[in-house]
Simulated assay, not measured.
Amino acid sequence: MKTVLITGSNGLLGQKLLDKLKHSAEYKVIATSKGNDRYCESGYIYERLDVTNAEEVRAVINKYQPKHVIHTAALTNVDACEIDKEQCYQLNVKSVEYLIEACNPFNTHFIHLSTDFVFDGLNGPYKEAGIPNPLSYYGQTKLESEKLLQSSMLDAAILRTILVYGVIKDKARVNIVTWAKNALERGGEINVVNDQFRNPTLAEDLADACLLVLEKRARGVFHISGKDYMSIEEIVRAVADYWKLDASLINPISSEALNQAAKRPAKTGFVLDKARKELGYQPHSFHEGLLIVDDQLKKFKPDNSDGQ
C-alpha cells in the first residue's frame, strides 16, 4: 500500500479527503492536524502535527515516509493574515519549507493547495499561465509557497482553488454557503459585496481533484473550482432561493464600503480546460452543489456563528 499523509485533516477539505480515502485498499492514510482528531472515525491513522514546528514535521515524515503528501493546512482567513503576518507566514510559507525538507529523502509526491488570491483580479477568469500579482498578504504567502515547491526537487502539483464550501462534521467552521443560510434564517439584514466575482467550489469536487492528481502523480499548476462564475451577491441570492429564505434581507454593498483589512481581487474565476483535459476533472454546478450540501445538512448541523 502507498502511504498518503494529509495535513489539516480537521478542516473542510481534509475531512472530505478522509471521506474518500478512509478504508482504502490502495492507500495507507495518515491524517494530521494540530489538535485532537475531530473527524473521529476508523480507516486511517491520526497523528497530531504542528506544521510550523520543523522537528515535528521531520519526525512524522520520517516515521511514515509517505509516497504522497496533500498539504491542506494553512491560514486562509484573509483579514487575519493581514493583521497577524507572522502567524500567516509561519503557516503558509514555513510549513511548506519544512515539509519539502522532510520529504526530500523519500521522493514524495507533494500536492499543495493554493488560491485565486495570487491574482489581482484585473484579468479573470484566469488560466494557469496567468501572471500572479497578489493584493493581500495572504495571497503573497500562498504565491511564495508555490515558488518554494516549483524550485524544489519534489514532484509537486499546485492546486489553486476558489471559495470552497461544504458541510464539516465538527461544526467548527462556516463558509459562504453555510454563513449565508444561517444568517438569513436568523432574519437579520446582511451586507454582501456585489463587485467581487468567483467560481464557488464544492469541497467534494476539490477532494476529487486531489485524488485525480494523486492517482496520476501529476505535476504542475492546476486551476480547480466550480463551473459557475458568479458575484458574491449572486451566490448568496442563490442560497436564499434554494432554501426559500427572505432575499430582501440581502443588502448589496461595494467592497470599499465593507472596509475589510485585506484587499480582495475584484474578478478572479478560473478557466478549467487544463484540469478537465489532463485530470478528467468534472465539477458540479453551484445548484448541484447546493443539493449535496442540503442532503448533508440533514445529517450534520453546522455551527451558527457568523463569518464569511
Rank of each mutant, 00 (worst) to 15 (best):
M1Y: 03
G8Q: 11
G11V: 06
L12V: 06
L17I: 12
L17K: 09
K22Y: 03
H23Y: 15
S24G: 09
S24N: 09
I30R: 06
A31W: 08
T32Y: 00
S33V: 06
G35M: 07
G35Y: 05
N36R: 14
R38P: 00
Y44D: 05
Y44A: 03
I45H: 11
I45Q: 10
R48Y: 00
T52E: 13
N53L: 07
N53G: 05
A54C: 14
E56D: 08
K63Y: 05
Y64M: 04
Q65M: 09
P66Y: 06
I70L: 14
L75S: 06
L75V: 12
T76W: 02
N77C: 10
V78H: 03
E82C: 01
K85C: 11
E86D: 14
E86C: 07
Y89L: 14
Q90S: 14
E97N: 13
C103N: 03
F106L: 07
F106V: 10
F117Q: 12
F119K: 02
F119R: 01
G121Y: 02
L122A: 09
K127F: 02
I131S: 05
I131N: 01
P132L: 02
N133C: 05
P134I: 04
Q140L: 09
T141F: 03
T141I: 06
K142T: 10
K142Y: 10
L143M: 11
E144G: 06
L148E: 14
Q150M: 15
S151P: 08
S151H: 15
S151I: 12
D155N: 15
D155E: 13
L159D: 08
V164S: 03
V164K: 02
Y165T: 04
Y165D: 04
K169D: 14
K171S: 07
R173S: 11
V174F: 01
I176M: 12
A180W: 10
K181I: 08
A183C: 09
L184V: 12
R186K: 15
E189H: 13
N191Y: 06
V192H: 04
N194C: 12
Q196G: 02
F197C: 09
T201Y: 00
A207I: 10
D208Y: 01
D208W: 00
A209H: 04
A209F: 03
A209C: 05
A209E: 08
L214G: 09
L214T: 11
R219C: 14
G220S: 13
I224T: 06
S231G: 05
I232G: 05
E233F: 11
E233I: 04
E234N: 08
I235C: 02
I235V: 15
R237K: 15
A238M: 09
V239S: 11
L245M: 11
S248R: 15
N259P: 01
V271N: 02
L272R: 01
L272T: 01
D273V: 08
K274M: 08
K274Y: 11
P283H: 00
H287F: 14
E288P: 00
I292W: 04
D295Y: 06
D295E: 15
K299R: 13
P302Q: 07
G307Q: 14
G307S: 13
Q308F: 15
